[in-house]
């Protein structure tokens, strides 16, 4: 079993894996930034009272959350060309990750905002603060404390989700494993190495999430 694990071949392929790792990190960073923007906008629409933007936001969030990411990726990958749009694989993949995580992030932010006690809003209202001041000084700072840990959790999910981009031939970490498997047929070496790199990213992000959990959750006032 693991006795004949071939480390030499891993070293031979190390440069390939490192490019894959870099590519995965790049995809993750770009997608999370875009997803955050999408999520904030979707959440703002979702909690607004204007029906014309509220219902489209609900539809977007619910459709994304109840269909698999892989189907969303294929939808864009096979669907955009039928609309006459030639988008390269990488961009298609990032678009899919952005739309997917954006919906989850919108819900995370909404949960953070609704978690702030109603009394806090009333206290702000009674002091004469207007809507934006209540949001800015009272709701958002407290919502941030409960939002950051699950946001970092979503970040972890996104890194793992980006592995699915290998199925539309985006050259990232998992795709490197597939490449090595098809060239040398050493799946154990290939995929355990891939798994190892994902674990490294996971532990870094998890340490960050745990740290933020301790740091950012405000103690209850009563």
């Amino acid at each position: 079993m693991l006795v004949d694990f071939n480390f030499r071949i891993i070293f031979e392929y190390l440069p390939l894996f490192l490019t894959g790792l870099r590519s995965t990190c790049f995809i993750a960073v770009v997608s999370i930034a875009l997803a955050l923007a999408t999520g904030i906008i979707a959440c703002a629409c979702r909690i607004s009272g204007v029906k014309a933007i509220k219902y489209p936001a609900i539809a977007y969030i619910e459709i994304i959350r109840s269909t698999p990411l892989l189907v969303q990726i294929y939808f864009l990958y096979f669907g955009l060309p039928t609309l006459g749009l030639r988008v390269p694989e990488l961009q298609t993949g990032i678009l899919a990750l952005m739309l997917n995580s954006g919906a989850y992030i919108a819900e995370i932010i909404r949960a953070g905002i609704t978690s702030v006690d109603d009394g806090q809003l009333e206290a702000g209202t009674a002091s004469g603060l207007n809507y934006f001041q209540r949001m800015r000084f009272i709701i958002l700072p407290q919502a941030l404390g409960v939002t950051i840990p699950p946001l970092l959790g979503q970040n972890i999910v996104l890194v793992k989700d980006s592995a699915l981009l290998s199925l539309i031939s985006v050259m990232e970490l998992t795709r490197c494993g597939q490449t090595m498997t098809s060239e040398r047929f050493m799946p154990a070496e290939a995929f355990f190495t891939v798994a190892f790199f994902y674990m490294c990213i996971y532990f870094c992000l998890k340490a960050l999430a745990d740290w933020s959990q301790r740091k950012l959750i405000f103690r209850e006032a009563y």
Binding site: K160, S162, L164, G177, P187, Y198, M199
Partner: peptide, 17 residues
Amino acid sequence: FVRGTPFVVQIFIIFFI
């Protein structure tokens, strides 16, 4: 291990290894 690696990689490990 399960939480830290993508599901697709886990499937490859099981199916190929």
